[in-house]
Nucleic acid binder design. Structure first.
Lengths: 93, 93
DNA sequence: TAAAGTAGTTTATAATATAAACCAAATAAA
DNA sequence: TTTATTTGGTTTATATTATAAACTACTTTA
């Protein structure tokens, strides 16, 4: 049986990646709302995705407020697609 | 976003369930080989699935050797199907 | 009958996820 | 204008989970 990438096999990280696969970019606040996660948890998981090279995290400003935006990388896109393929063999899809 | 049943969202437990969904029953040794897990890990995860009511574990004999066989329950079958549905929304399938 | 193998379980440890506590800047209220 | 309050996060402590190592009991082989 295929290995399931442990970086992606986590509910919150998978949710974040799932969102990022369908948009150009998404910011911290949006991801937090969409995933209904706590800020702390989200922050940690974004770090892990970023450290793995699956997303880029950019800190900027929206007016005077800080704004953290995320984008999936090419590596992340590939990892996600491979994860989906691996999972299919478990789910009988 | 839908919740992913934490009992199923574990590589080894998911692998076991995936196997059991397609066969009448499977024994410990077979599951261990198929999943390439250690006996200890498998034993623990079978317990969890059993405690959740997702599988039944029956201890019997094959000749003089002990033989532990597992079967998925109706509850387990439903949980697995719901898990698949929930995952689909993450994977864009 | 001693050694090695089989079929597991129990327990200790490492890794993970999660939330609570915290911090800094901006805005609102007194 | 100083003092709450809110916003947008990060760091750290804790609970949960996964995993393998160590162990048990019984069987087969030498």
């Amino acid at each position: 049986m295929k290995e399931l990438d442990p970086i992606l096999h986590s509910q919150l990280r998978l949710a974040v990646m799932s969102i990022l696969m369908n948009v150009e970019e998404a910011d911290f606040v949006y991801l937090k709302e969409k995933t209904e996660s706590t800020a702390g948890n989200l922050s940690v998981q974004l770090d892990k995705l970023s450290t793995a090279g699956y997303i880029t995290v950019t800190k900027g400003f929206a007016g005077k407020k800080t704004r953290t935006t995320c984008q999936v990388t090419e590596l992340g896109r590939k990892a996600f697609e491979q994860y989906v393929e691996a999972l299919k063999s478990y789910l009988n899809l």
